[in-house]
Design a protein around this nucleic acid. Structure first.
Length: 520
DNA sequence: GCTGTCTGCCCC
DNA sequence: ATTCTGC
DNA sequence: GCAGAATGGGCAGACAGC
């Protein structure tokens, strides 16, 4: 911001909420040539007009990541609930007002997860009050509810013990994009993402598939499913990275290069009726009655209804071999309603199981300054593997999770004593894209786990093994522990990383596609 | 036109 | 996405 | 157990600068 812009004769009029909102909307709409400059001018105008603490909150709003004053969606809902409860204080008073308050909050939370639209909630609230809200504002066709989630489990035995004596199913956990598909009464289709974004226009092929394979008696319905990349030639699932290369705007069926297969696993609504309260057993039956299956186009998630530890273990291995991430475990009848936004299902991914995850020993060669509660520490470390042939360290990933405060503090201290002004000549990285704030001498070795390996446009590990000028990287890297018994030259080698990458497609022999094949 | 960089009520 | 922390 | 806040890789699009 140039000083000159602030030398004004008259201070602009004070900001109002309405004016700030209007300006934000204008910023959002600005696009095209010089749009960045225009946006900057809007911000400048706001800041010039701001007084007292206003600049602080303007900046926090503009920097997204919330206000950082503890005000979240939940607080808004609580406020709404309290307001409603106060307004109706005299209408219902069976019990303490405090308990009314907390009941009202629960009602609001529940309703919001099923109808996450204030334009629907508030009128219903004003009209019928909090205590009728669950009836006056409920799941409706065309409005996405929050998807039901799953919490991680660490072992098959944990599952078997937790659900001892009750019926449950294990489904393949497909590596794709979560989608909620609404089939409207008029025959039109709407698709929503996990975060409730409308992505209808992104999947014309999915829309055609749903229209074609929906059985005649189905007038309207809502599907919960995973959209997965699919190689129709090889009849194999494609990695998420391939699916993500599809266009996102102005997509036409004829131009689609990566096919998608729908793996359906739940039915939330059918012919005018919400199924959220029904047991999964019922919903699943209705789902299977509602659609035809066509391999590679629309399938039901592969599932096994078993409580046998060994059977489940074998099934998990099968899932991983079929290029899935693992299993999702769901009760069938007890506590088996669809609960939007709640993590009542359980996921069992190979990266949670010590015996199955990919583990690497890597060398921190640089770091980035931390933010928020990590201000004054490093928040992230740049990690490298070793290439003993070239005698160089090659960047492979950043890591910033898995550190307790104590461990983080300790390693920040150790490493800052190893700081060097410039990278060693035997450090290979892509300058700019991954240049850290500070460089270190190679000294420590850290064990890092990953949910899989990827081909990376910015990391260098094993880049001379690939023929596409790309390297390998890690998916969901997490620090496990320092390896005090290892020296940097004993770190995982680029060759080993390449082997890990190709091994993960063992059950899928035609993967990865040709642009990623080994240099020969 | 091409390339580099940054953003996304992004996806995971 | 994962993980850690405070409540 | 839950919510919030740290942090990861990587894609298409969009914009800026040449």
């Amino acid at each position: 911001m140039r000083r000159s812009s602030q030398t004004m004769i008259h201070k602009p009029p004070p900001l109002t909420v309405a004016k700030v909102l209007e300006t934000f909307r204008r910023i959002a709409k600005e696009s095209g040539k010089n749009s960045k400059e225009k946006k900057k001018n809007h911000v400048r105008a706001l800041l010039v007009a701001a007084c007292d603490c206003e600049p602080k909150y303007l900046i926090r709003l503009l920097l997204k990541d919330k206000l950082r004053i503890g005000l979240s969606e939940l607080s808004l809902l609580e406020a709404l609930a309290c307001a409603a409860a106060y307004a109706e204080k005299h209408s219902v008073s069976c019990g303490s007002f405090q308990s009314d308050l907390s009941k009202a909050v629960d009602v609001l939370k529940g309703v919001h997860s099923m109808v996450p639209v204030y334009e629907r909630i508030v009128p219903a609230l004003l009209d019928g009050g909090v205590w009728n809200l669950a009836d006056t504002c409920s799941f409706s066709l065309g409005i996405p509810c929050e998807p039901m989630l799953s919490a991680p489990a660490k072992s098959v035995s944990e599952i078997v013990n937790r659900y001892h004596g009750i019926e449950y199913t294990c489904e393949y956990k497909y590596d794709g994009i979560r989608a909620q598909i609404h089939c409207m009464d008029d025959g039109s289709i709407r698709i929503f993402s996990r975060k409730l974004e409308c992505c209808t226009n992104q999947y014309p092929d999915v829309i055609l598939a749903v229209k074609r394979l929906k059985r005649v008696p189905v007038k309207s319905c809502v599907l919960d499913c995973e959209i997965v990349g699919y190689d129709s030639e090889q009849m194999k699932i494609l990695p998420l990275q391939k699916l993500m290369t599809r266009g996102r705007k102005g997509v036409h069926v004829d131009n689609i290069k990566i096919n998608a297969c729908i793996f359906a696993f739940d039915l939330l609504y059918l012919n005018g009726q919400s199924l959220l309260q029904e047991q999964l057993k019922i919903r699943r039956k209705l789902l299977k009655d509602s659609f035809e299956v066509e391999t590679g186009i629309l399938q039901f998630a592969t599932a096994l209804d078993s409580s046998n530890l060994d059977e489940i273990q074998v099934f998990l291995d099968k899932a991983v071999n079929a290029s899935c991430e693992g299993l999702v475990i769901k009760t069938l009848s007890v506590d088996a309603a669809y609960e939007p936004g709640k993590a009542k299902w359980v996921k069992l991914k190979k990266d949670y199981l010590e015996s199955m995850w990919d583990s690497l020993d890597l060398v921190p060669i640089g770091a980035y300054f931390g933010k928020g509660r990590r201000t004054a520490f490093y928040g992230t470390f740049l990690l490298a593997c070793y290439d003993p042939d070239k005698e160089e360290f090659q960047t492979v990933t950043k890591a910033g999770t898995g550190f307790s405060e104590e461990v983080l503090k300790e390693h920040c201290q150790i490493l800052s004593s190893k700081m060097i002004p410039k990278p060693k000549p035997y450090y290979r990285h892509i300058s700019g894209k991954t240049t850290p704030d500070v460089w270190f001498e190679p000294s420590e070795v850290w064990e890092v786990k990953a949910g899989g390996l990827t081909i990376s446009p910015v990391y260098c590990a094993g880049s001379d093994i690939l023929n596409s000028n790309k390297g390998f990287s890690l998916r969901n890297p997490t620090l496990i522990r320092p390896r005090e018994d290892k020296s940097p030259e004993q770190a995982t080698t680029s060759k080993q990383i390449a082997e890990m990458y190709f091994r993960q497609w063992q059950g899928n022999p035609h993967m990865p596609p040709d642009d990623e094949e080994i240099n020969s």
